[in-house]
Nucleic acid binder design. Structure first.
Lengths: 217, 217
DNA sequence: CTCCAGTTCAAACGACCGTTTGAACTATGC
DNA sequence: GCATAGTTCAAACGGTCGTTTGAACTGGAG
């Protein structure tokens, strides 16, 4: 082992993932990140250049394996003929949930980070995410269109955006119960929180039904 | 007309709606709000007490007509017997989109504000919204459960959260095309942006299909 | 006119923000 | 040993943040 411990750069990325995922971009200060990463403030600008560049690096690192897996599945599906809507939806959802949620606590942090940044209040930040996610977007849209020939391009794009949005919301855990929101009897907890596999199945089933029968024209 | 012009308090609420909806809570400063409202900084703390109290007041004011309309529709539906899933979904979606989007530019501002705050990065802010929305949540859940007896309570809650999330994303316009994200050929614009009625129809159809056939067990 | 509650105002408070600086430390190559 | 490139550090930079203060203004009641 050459570098047995995490490098400062890695620690910064790890903590940035966690804190940005919890408080959003504007709500998280570089000082909070550097303190938690046991690094000096200046280290951020030394290794990345700015706060936004740190976020960009963190997004790129977090999205890389998801994009790779999505591309791989898409290649495989298209090599095997005409994929069904369900296969395409699985190829999109599962890399976003399983690949990232299956690896214990760390994966949940990455998922929350991705989901949060994807719909950050700031358009600037959202576009930063979109740029990382876009390369395969047109491939998915085209494949979905082929699998749903009766749906108009607008309808397919509408469904795709809904899929992307719902995935992000579940990734960010924003749809999980806000523990004691308003004294309601919401003690029952949707099964999904602890078992990402079940969440993926539920979400895929939900979306498949919506795509198959819920797209107009 | 007793007060022909807007009061300082109203101007603050109007501008807060717009700015918070654009930049989120953390990303919007009181100074930016007060300048745009032609008010003094201290006016915020005089009329509301704090930045968060201003947000709370704005959320309450924006949600009030939506909640009223939802309650009215729910009352009407339950008085007429056993409502269908589609009727319940319409009773939830349409007040959130039409009632707020139909009134020109101003309505779009309110919708974006509501949608943005509902999934703000900060849990504190999200709960502030949830508290304003919760009172009717349990009624909707119960009615949906009755309309979908074959679905488990967890499945119904899962569908409800998806509906709530998708509505918020469309309200906040976060699912609209980020104009020139990454040089893709996404010139075609989903029909939904200019016609809120069509968006409501598309979203209802999408959700009805998902509820009717996409909920497990 | 006086009074007074309601409202607005400029100015300042301390705290925190992202960024920069220049020196100090570290390790590798010669 | 000495130079050198890479990295870390404490400290400070100018700015902006939410909040507070106390005086000035407003308009109706007595």
């Amino acid at each position: 082992m050459e570098t047995p411990v995490e490098t400062t750069r890695e620690r910064l990325l790890n903590v940035a993932e966690q804190r940005f995922g919890e408080g959003g971009y504007e709500g998280t200060s570089l000082r909070a990140i550097t303190v938690a990463a046991a690094a000096n403030i200046a280290a951020v600008n030394y290794h990345f250049g700015s706060k936004e560049a740190l976020l960009r690096a963190a997004v790129a690192r977090a999205m890389a394996p998801v994009n790779t897996e999505r591309r791989r599945r898409l290649d495989q599906l298209e090599a095997g003929g005409a994929p069904t809507p369900e296969e395409l939806i699985r190829a999109f959802i599962e890399p976003g949930l399983e690949l990232v949620l299956r690896r214990g606590e760390r994966g949940a942090v990455v998922a929350r980070f991705i989901g949060r940044i994807a719909f950050d209040p700031s358009r600037r930040i959202r576009e930063l995410y979109a740029a990382e996610s876009d390369p395969i977007e047109s491939r998915y849209l085209a494949a979905l269109q082929r699998a749903l020939p009766q749906a108009s391009p607008d309808a397919v794009a509408f469904g795709y955006m809904n899929m992307l949005g719902l995935l992000a919301l579940h990734q960010s855990q924003a749809l999980s119960p806000t523990p004691g929101a308003a004294g309601a009897a919401n003690t029952a907890n949707p099964v999904n929180t602890e078992d990402p596999g079940k969440l993926a199945e539920n979400l895929v089933a939900f979306l498949v039904a919506a795509f198959d029968r819920g797209l107009r024209a």
